[in-house]
Design a protein around this nucleic acid. Structure first.
Lengths: 248, 248
DNA sequence: CGTTTCAATATGTATATACATAATCGCCAT
DNA sequence: ATGGCGATTATGTATATACATATTGAAACG
């Protein structure tokens, strides 16, 4: 028999001790068996219960604490936390993937491409303080024959110089940027908007029709990279977000 | 001098070794110094660099791996991951807090309250398979004198029996439920919608005006608890979501 | 009676060690 | 060549131990 035991139980899943402690406690909390405020067993008690070292218990509890499920207090013990503010994780996929998930053929078409020195509006959208070259793009994502989303994008050419050479005729800027910009932070704004005449015409919907607007500002290493606005006709799109007390 | 050293540097922040390794590596990845695919030093190399034990390095790297910043491969080493699909964290606050953040007085008013045996539509919204008692509520959240959001809610009375006794005259069901339902999972759907005549009248906007709709389904311990639909006039509300490569 | 001090306690961080396991590399026999 | 085999290597998981640190509760003191 090995020194490190793995336990085969229930569904036949193999869990490490660490994971078993984690899921046991999580289950107790999520089921309500241990309500908010309840003191969970001390580390040394769990050490006995699971017949393992304190380090193993400690790692599991620290993880639960980081996930916000429990709160740890020196000298007092660990307590089930109060359910915090609703925070949901929103997965924002590439539009190609969304369209193909619907079983429809995807196509991107460039409508406009303009290189210019940033005007005040560009700088506001990108969060730039000084003027510099930007690329303004407008394009349309199709699902089959129907417009699926309108994309209006600004790229900060000081941050992504190579973009100046790219035509973006039928490759969308999103996928192009991923892979070229290493890792980034982003801020998203989601709102509803009535289609103005131009947007309505482009998306082939009625003027004034409701649209879902998703705006994203992206930074890489503190430098503004891009600002993009996606406009979806209301019928074409629902964002789905999930909240599960972190599996952390 | 203590055995466990803490290091005081830069901004004067005290970081544990563990945290220092974490933030050093994160910085290298986010700055692009170590691009995606780059092999980061082996554990034993970092052990030398930071003059600490492998366990400490291992904990830090495992954490980065769980956060998705790096990918670990046995026998090969650890590598900077490809920036994954955009996932953003959406904080969905209580409406009272949102309104008060705007500096406006908040008020909730019940419009309707109906206890009934679930009809098919209720069960579809709640995700119930068998019929049972539900409470259907409709209420209006005010910011000052103006309607801020319309709330249409179903509560599964089999899961939250006490709700049957509550009038919800001027206390919103959201805050009431928090604290009574221990920990929960939720699914959110966000979309744009045109106000129909009833909604327009209630929210005091034009029929057909765009609205942002946020629907939330909540479970606790696998049991459906509540379904709620918030309808915001487009002007009144923007959701903000942030994505930062996990600090995990 | 209030305050100060101190020991006890539970968690926080780190070490050295041990063994497990998956993947890869090179060797060898076919 | 090539297909299998074993050694090597880097990570994965767990242990026992040590010392740090915040907090509490009780004892000692003015």
């Amino acid at each position: 028999m090995s020194l490190i035991e793995t336990v085969d139980f229930d569904g036949g899943e193999i869990l490490s001790l660490h994971q078993r402690i984690l899921s046991d406690i999580r289950e107790k909390i999520l089921s309500g068996a241990w309500p908010p405020g309840h003191r969970i067993p001390f580390e040394h008690e769990l050490t006995d219960e699971y017949n393992c070292s304190r380090m193993t218990v400690n790692k599991a509890l620290s993880q639960l604490a980081k996930a916000g499920l429990i709160e740890r207090r020196r000298r007092s013990g660990s307590f089930v936390g109060q359910p915090q503010s609703q925070a949901a994780v929103l997965e924002l996929h590439d539009i190609r993937i969304e369209v193909e998930a619907l079983g429809l053929p995807y196509r991107y078409e460039r409508l406009e491409r303009l290189k210019r020195r940033s005007i005040a509006e560009d700088r506001a959208l990108l969060g730039l303080s000084a003027p510099g070259p930007v690329l303004a793009l407008e394009g349309l994502h199709f699902a089959g024959e129907r417009p699926f989303a309108l994309e209006q994008r600004l790229i900060n050419l000081s941050a992504v110089a190579e973009a100046a050479e790219e035509e973006f005729l039928d490759i969308a800027p999103g996928p192009w940027l991923i892979g070229r910009v290493p890792w980034s932070e982003a801020e998203h704004r989601i709102r509803a908007m009535a289609a103005d005449d131009t947007v309505a015409d482009t998306l082939d919907i009625d003027p004034g029709a409701p649209c879902l607007v998703v705006e994203r500002r992206t930074w890489s290493a503190e430098h503004p990279v891009t600002h993009v606005r996606f406009v979806y006709p209301a019928e074409s799109h629902t964002l789905v977000a999930r909240f599960t007390p972190s599996q952390g």
